[in-house]
Amino acid sequence: MAHLTRYSLTSESRRLILKPELLQINQLSAGYGPLRVLHEIDLTVRAGERIGLVGLNGHGKTTMMRAITHMTGWQQGSIRFNGVEIGGNRSQGAGRRTPGLVKMGIAVAPQGDAIFPGLSVRKHLECGAHTKLAWRERRQRIAQIYKIFPALDPLQDALVGKLSGGERRMVSIGRMLMADAKLYLIDEPSLGLAPKISKRVMEALWALPVEGAMIIAEQNVSLLTGRADRIVGMHAGRMRGDVGHVELV
């Protein structure tokens, strides 16, 4: 991160320092089979904080998000979420605890979108409403999603498998937003999208009226600068630099 030389704390970031810690990752290692991807990672996320996670392809951004939701092959180390230990040693059962963690308040928009190709946009969004409250209010909440992404409004009954990449990304993010979460994990929201569309998706993300903290993994640093409270760099599975508001030189 040699080019990220000058940085300063914004007033927004200073306000956040007083907030309680929502997620504390301590000495987390994770990987798949014999492959170790994460090496003793430490990261703290405060409530309401928006963090940009930058790093090259294959340097552990996605693996870190998957490790938080127990989707990696194995992991060790401590993850405290909202005061509860959700980490620990684990060598199998990838995905077994994921639905429970989602219900605890971790919402995910995974890389590759993980869409249901044969379901319509509306049914898709209904799937995201997994809490009792969200299910009861699902109509209002779906209308809210259509307000955030007006492009989805005319596609309500279209099968998601027939949509374009940008529309799928909106559906995936919309599904993530259906239930109130404390922590939102968004993996590469601009990946594979045309610059104009990726910009629109990012604008929508920053404008979200959500209370929770947010971690956005992104390779394009310029989409994060000025908007994220903090930018964290990853290199070769290790944390590299943890800086406040960054301006590119």
Partner: peptide, 26 residues
């Protein structure tokens, strides 16, 4: 039905279903 929606979601994408809070065990 809601349960039916969960089953169809699981049939089409297990990972997406897990991220939607749909548990395979249940």
């Amino acid at each position: 039905s809601r349960r039916g929606l969960e089953v169809r979601a699981m049939m089409q994408n297990a990972e997406g279903a897990a991220y939607s809070g749909i548990s395979r065990q249940v």
